[in-house]
Every structure is written in structure tokens, then in C-alpha cells.
Simulated scan of single mutants.
Amino acid sequence: MEHSNAKSKIGFIGWFKQKWDSEPLFSTAIALLIMIVLQTLVLGFDYDSFGEWFQAWLNNWINILRNNAATGIIALGMTLVIMTGGIDLAVGSTLVAIGAMLMMLIDAGTKGILAGFGLTGAPAFIVAIIIVLIFGYLLGAANGLLVTLGRTPPFIATLGTMMVFRSVTQHFMQGYNPTVPVDFLQLASFQIGNFMIMPIIYWAIIAIILHYVSKRTTFGRQIIAVGSNEKAAKLSGVNVNKVKFHVYALMGLLVAFASTIQVSRIGAMDFANAGRGLEMDAIAAAVVGGTSMMGGRGSIVGTVFGMLIIAVMNNLLNLFGVPPFLRDAFKGFIVIAAVLLQRKERI
């Protein structure tokens, strides 16, 4: 009742502006709704029946979500990193390094590591995934140690590891083309009701878990505290370095999940070019979703919305035939607009 009275006093426009200025999730949801409407209009309605139109609409959305699931998972981790006041520019190179490790482990050819020990099929896949998850955690932990114990600015630390991880991977993988077993592709291509939605399910599960962690756990509250005011967090008894370390290590773990999904979805990886620009996509999704680059504010749900906005925009640009080299320009404009339009008070 009080909400209705307040809304009637200030009017709809005033209420809308107030919500837009004070709630990042509200403005992101409105932007996503606009993108969905545009996407629907561009697809058109020239179909013989509503069922045929809906099927085309649904297939388009499944393709969008499936193709962006791996990036979406990385964007979730990037949100937590940015919330601490940090940044991780190495996610693309980390993805490539982990992908290379995974493909060497499960290689169906004569050089396959696990096959050399007589381990193939599902047992090999399980062992390989466990190994790469640990490997991803360690790579993320390396960034965390540089930022905490090394007291290196996150930008510099992850810029350095970005070059190291990709360079070392390319060196060891030159001339080697692992063959991904067909059965491994089922991790991403297994059909549920004629739809290949497994990457979407993985993304949704991880988003739900991280939403709970960020909103309902002590660790989540500590992330916000560290990003909001590091000195105040220390005085409150928060182990700032420990929080930062775990966030970067978690980032590496999430990249490992994303890399596994990517390999199982595509069945290959271009070690020279895969993951390039991935850090910018993840940062863009987080910022568009309302995460403050100054730290201390962010939302997992907002990042999911932000990732969907970026994904739909990319799809629209493709449908409009915009040259590939210009698409990043549009993405840059959206990020700048998000920062300019969402000048809200930090929580």
C-alpha cells in the first residue's frame, strides 16, 4: 500500500527514474527486455502458424544461450573478481591452457596421455575433468598469489599471466593436433527433448550456486566488504588477502568449467586465437549487469542479464550483416553507455 501511494505521488515517470537510478538490476532488466523485443521483431512473423513461429523463436534463443554459456560462466567469476576491486585479463589465455591440457589427456590418438595408461571412455573423461578443474584452480591461484602476496596490481598481474599462459601453451602445442573422442562431445551435445541444452543447464546451475554464495554466505559478504572499503574490512576482522586469493582461484576453476564445455561443444580449439577478447566480453557482461568497476557492488543475476544483452546484440548485428570488425565497436558503446547511464550510489 505504501509503495502504491509513493508511486502515485511521484508519478510513473518519477518512479521509473528513481528505480533506474537506484537499482542496477532494474535498469539491466529493462535493457534486456528491449533487446528481446528487438530480437523478436527482427526475426519477423512470416510463418504459416504460431507453432512454427514459436519453434523458430525458441531455436534461435537456444542457439544464443548455448553459444554464450561458456562466456557466461566466466562472466560470473569476473563479477566476483571485479566486486573485490580487481580484474582478471588472463581468462582467455587460461581457457586455452586448460583446453590444451584437457585435449592432451583425452586425445583419442596415439599421444593421448590417459589412453597411454589404458584409461579410455567415461572413466578417462571423469579423471581428465577432475585434473583440469584442479589445473584451472591452480592457474587462478597463481593470479591470486601475485595480487596478494606479490602485491602486484591485478591489471599488471593478470596482463602478465595472460601472455605467459598463451605463449607457453602455443609452444607446447605447436604441431600437435589432439583428437577429441566423439563420446566426449556428448557433454555438450546430449539432447533433452530434441534440444541440445546441456551448456545452458551447466551455466544455470553455476549461476544459482554463485548467486547463493554472493547473497547468503559470509564469503559473499566479505567480497562486498573488501570491494567497498578494504581498510574498513581489515578493521572488521576480514582477511582481505584470503578473500582475494579465493576469488581469483575460483575464477580459474570457473574458466576450467567453461573450457571443458567449449571443448565438448566444438570438439577442437585454436590455441593461437581461442579466447582472445574473452576477458572483454566477461567484463562487458558484468558492467552492463550493474557491477561497479570500483568494486563493492555487483549481482550474479545482473551479470546473467548483462551477458544476455551482449549475446542478443551480437546476434542482431549478425542478422543485420554488420561487418565482424565493427561488432566490437558496438559492444564498446554499450559498455560505455552502461557506465554513463548507471551512475548509482555504491552500496
Rank of each mutant, 00 (worst) to 15 (best):
F271Y: 15
G267W: 01
A282Q: 09
Q262A: 04
D281R: 01
G275I: 11
T260H: 05
L278P: 06
A256Y: 07
F271Q: 11
E279H: 11
M269S: 13
I261Y: 12
N273K: 13
S259P: 06
A285N: 09
I261D: 09
R276H: 00
F257S: 04
A268L: 07
D270E: 13
G267R: 04
S264D: 03
A272I: 13
I261K: 07
G275T: 11
I283H: 04
N273E: 11
F257V: 10
I266T: 14
A284I: 00
S259G: 05
Q262C: 04
R265P: 01
D281M: 11
S264G: 13
T260A: 10
I266L: 14
S264P: 08
A274E: 01
D270A: 14
G277S: 14
S264L: 06
D270M: 10
V263M: 10
I266N: 10
M280V: 14
A272D: 15
G267I: 05
T260D: 06
S259A: 15
F271H: 14
N273L: 07
Q262W: 03
G267C: 00
G277H: 14
R276I: 14
A256F: 01
A272Y: 14
G267H: 09
M269E: 06
V255K: 12
A284E: 12
D270Q: 13
G275H: 10
R276P: 08
M280G: 06
A274T: 04
S264Q: 10
A256E: 10
A274V: 02
I261M: 05
S264E: 02
N273S: 14
A258V: 01
F257W: 11
D270P: 12
I283Q: 07
Q262F: 08
N273R: 08
A284Y: 06
A268E: 02
A282S: 12
R265Y: 05
I283L: 00
A285C: 05
S264K: 03
F271A: 01
T260P: 09
A284C: 09
Q262N: 03
E279L: 00
S259H: 03
M269H: 00
V263S: 03
A285I: 07
E279F: 11
M269W: 03
A285T: 05
A256C: 01
A284K: 08
E279Y: 02
E279Q: 06
G275M: 03
D270F: 13
G275Y: 00
I261N: 05
V255I: 03
S264R: 12
A258G: 07
A284R: 02
I266Q: 11
D281H: 08
T260Y: 10
A282G: 12
A284N: 07
E279N: 08
M269K: 01
A272H: 14
G267E: 01
A272M: 15
F271L: 09
M280Y: 15
G275D: 02
F271V: 15
A256M: 12
V263W: 08
G277C: 13
A285W: 10
A272C: 11
S264Y: 07
M269C: 02
A258R: 04
I261T: 07
A285F: 00
G277Y: 13
I283W: 10
D281F: 10
M269V: 11
M280L: 15
I266S: 10
Q262T: 13
E279R: 03
V263P: 04
R276E: 09
G277T: 13
G275C: 08
A285Q: 08
A282I: 09
R265G: 06
I283E: 06
V263F: 03
A272R: 15
